[in-house]
Each structure stands twice: as C-alpha cells, then as structure tokens.
Computed example of a mutant assay.
Amino acid sequence: MSNQAEQERINHVYRQWHGGAALDRYAWHRPEIVRQAAARARVLAALLPATVGRDLSAVRAIDIGCGNGAFLRQLIDWGALPAHLAGTELQPDRLEHAHAHTAPGVRWHLGQLDDFADASVDLVSAHTVFSSILDEDLRRALAAQMWRVLRPGGWTMIFDFRYDNPRNPNVRKVSDVELLRFWPTETRHYRTLVLAPPLGRVLARLPRLLPELLETLVPPLRSHFVYMAKKE
C-alpha cells in the first residue's frame, strides 16, 4: 500500500468515527473514560518533570494528531505557554474544535510536520496516532519526522496501544521493538496504564476500588503505554 493510499484510508476511518454511537462510547462523562483520563494524567505528571522539567513555561511542544486539543490544554493547565505550543491534525473539523476550545496563541496546522523547522521543539507527542497507521513505511516516516523537529535533549512522547484489538482491523499495536527501532536512544521511559477498554466498560458499573486494584496489581491487563525517548 502506498503512503497516499494509507493516508486516505486513515482519513476515511476517522471521518466515519466522528459522531454517533462511536463518539458516545468515548464521551468524557463515561466512568471508564474518566478513569482512563485520570490514569494518563498521573503517568504524565510523573514523567514530564523527569524529562522536560517541572517548569513547562519554556517548553516548546508539538502534538501530532491533536484531535480536540485535550493534551495541549493539559500542558497549558500545567504551566506551558500557548505561544510555545502547536497542534497538527488531518481532520479540519477536529482542528476547528481544538482552536475554538483552547487558549489563544496555540499554532494550529492542518497537515503533516513538513512546515516545522529542524530541531525546533523540546517535546513532540503523538497520542493513539501510530496504532491508526497500519503501513510500516508510513509509521517509520512519521517517527523520523518527529525526531527531525526535536532539538538535541528533547523528548518524544507516545501514548498508544500495546495490544491488537481483534474487533477493530483499523488499528495495530505498537510494539517495544518498533519503539526502539524508531527512536534508538539509551535514555527512555516506558509505563503501562489503563485497563483494556472492554474490561474497563464492564467494571465501570462496579465500585471504583476494584478496577483500580486490577490496574495496579495485574499489569498484563493494562492495554496502553506511555513511551518517552530522549534525543541525545
């Protein structure tokens, strides 16, 4: 499959995903979504001070596939300056939503990373982006672009799936081997988190302590990871 064909496939899948039952499944108020967001925030709140530093006011960052802008708003809440942040997206309606609901000053870009300069940012992130790319060459090309825009000493951040979803042929897990091949560096962090979504939805009806205990005590049940790699 050519890169262009793969990109068109991804665009088609995401256009179908917008709205309806799929959107309701991931609504912000659902208990399992609230728990996922809290788990991710806890991991990021531990990793960011250990990587880019505790003071985010000087950090320059790009979020790839920024969606509705949630991660960039999280960085702003934690002290990042909007003028130092950028979000890229391939879906115009999602980019418009992010722009409308985020503090002024963030740079919004429809398209790829081509317009961003070499070694220009301290942090480049991609949240559930790589699992949406089935083509290995396109994954490798995006990883190379992320490495290109990072300054020496900067960090990539990947939040994604560590398991395949047998019910969704449009996503593919991101393996440990791929992460090391994409960003070969000695300085890296890997954290697993979040109960597998089908299990999380079932347990959402039970007292909060049970899913939290399972997530803490049974690591194989965690379906996602956060990976950060430093550009030496």
Rank of each mutant, 00 (worst) to 15 (best):
E8C: 04
I10V: 12
N11R: 09
H12R: 02
V13S: 01
Y14V: 09
Q16C: 09
G19W: 11
L23D: 03
D24F: 04
H29N: 10
R35A: 15
Q36N: 15
A37Y: 11
R42D: 11
L44K: 11
P49F: 07
V52G: 07
L56T: 02
L56M: 10
A58T: 06
V59Q: 06
D63Y: 03
G67F: 09
G69T: 03
F71V: 08
L72I: 11
Q74L: 15
Q74H: 12
D77K: 13
W78D: 11
A80W: 09
A80R: 06
A80G: 05
A83E: 13
G87Q: 09
G87N: 03
T88W: 11
D93L: 08
D93N: 10
R94P: 08
L95R: 04
H97M: 07
H99D: 05
A103R: 12
V106K: 09
H109P: 13
H109C: 15
L110V: 00
G111I: 06
L113I: 00
F116Q: 02
A117W: 04
A119C: 05
S120L: 08
S120N: 10
V121Q: 06
V124Y: 05
T128I: 05
S131Y: 04
I133R: 00
I133E: 05
R140D: 15
L142Q: 01
M146K: 09
M146L: 06
M146P: 14
W147E: 03
W147S: 11
L150A: 14
P152D: 03
G153N: 13
G154E: 08
G154I: 14
M157L: 13
F159Q: 03
R162V: 01
R162H: 04
N168D: 04
P169W: 00
V171S: 00
K173G: 03
V174K: 10
S175K: 07
V177F: 08
E178V: 14
L179N: 05
R181P: 06
F182Y: 07
P184V: 02
T185H: 11
T185C: 12
T187W: 08
R188Y: 10
H189D: 02
Y190V: 10
Y190R: 06
T192F: 09
V194Y: 10
L195N: 05
L199M: 10
L199I: 14
L199S: 10
G200S: 13
R201W: 15
V202F: 09
A204Y: 01
R205M: 01
P211E: 07
L213V: 08
L214M: 14
E215P: 00
E215M: 00
L217K: 02
L221S: 11
H224W: 01
H224P: 09
V226S: 01
M228H: 08
A229F: 00
K230M: 11
K230W: 13
E232R: 13
